[in-house]
Nucleic acid binder design. Sequence first.
DNA 1: TAAACATATGAACAATTGCTCATATGTTTA
DNA 2: TAAACATATGAGCAATTGTTCATATGTTTA
Lengths: 119, 119
Amino acid sequence: MAINEVECCETYQTHEELLALVNAKMPDEDKLYDLAELFKVFGDSTRIRILYVLFEAEVCVCDLAEALHMTQSAISHQLKILKQSRLVKSRREGKSVFYSLADGHVRTIIAQGREHLDE
Amino acid sequence: MAINEVECCETYQTHEELLALVNAKMPDEDKLYDLAELFKVFGDSTRIRILYVLFEAEVCVCDLAEALHMTQSAISHQLKILKQSRLVKSRREGKSVFYSLADGHVRTIIAQGREHLDE
DNA sequence: TAAACATATGAACAATTGCTCATATGTTTA
DNA sequence: TAAACATATGAGCAATTGTTCATATGTTTA
């Protein structure tokens, strides 16, 4: 009881051990925040659908809007979020802007999510 | 122009191809919704912190609350969400309830998220 | 240069979310 | 059985979020 004055249930023999472990292994506040922000991006079915389209091809904004039956504005707002998280990248070609996946983690993360749901 | 009456930018030679591909590869509405719901669970830093504690040990609610400096109620509400998504499981032992990770996908998903952020 | 096209963006609004507070439920012990 | 302890839960509130609408920015073409 040197470090922690307060105790709760009867597991207190390992309390200090647990708290030390948590302090040692827990990432920084900033890192945890960024991690949560990243997963938040995956936490919307419109953005998931956009990513699924981009799994297949590099696509411009208006084609994405058409394929997903949504307005250009809605898609554009979501693409901005995906780009800020560096999940997609863009390339201008004349009047159009083409979007594609930025890296392979997107596929892995979504694949793991599906595996979890399928088990 | 048999199937789609509306066109947008000049990439329309592949429009029908794209739309067919999207229809073929895109998971069902329900699956997409569940996937987004799952990632929403990862999209909160309190829940991420809970998961990080559970990476190290099976822990009861009051110890989680203490380790994360949060109220028992807040932790309990979040544990309910984690359990509904089958990311954690629980076991009662007397007055206490001990929580632990439900499967390995949690670690993989979070690890991939961190990899993405670190690149 | 003006019009048309493709995309981006700010404001606004409804819907969702995480926490707090009060209290209910479940378990043990005096 | 009553009191104490550990956890769960419903209501309420502030904060966040996804879409729409209007409009701005950027590019091409007549």
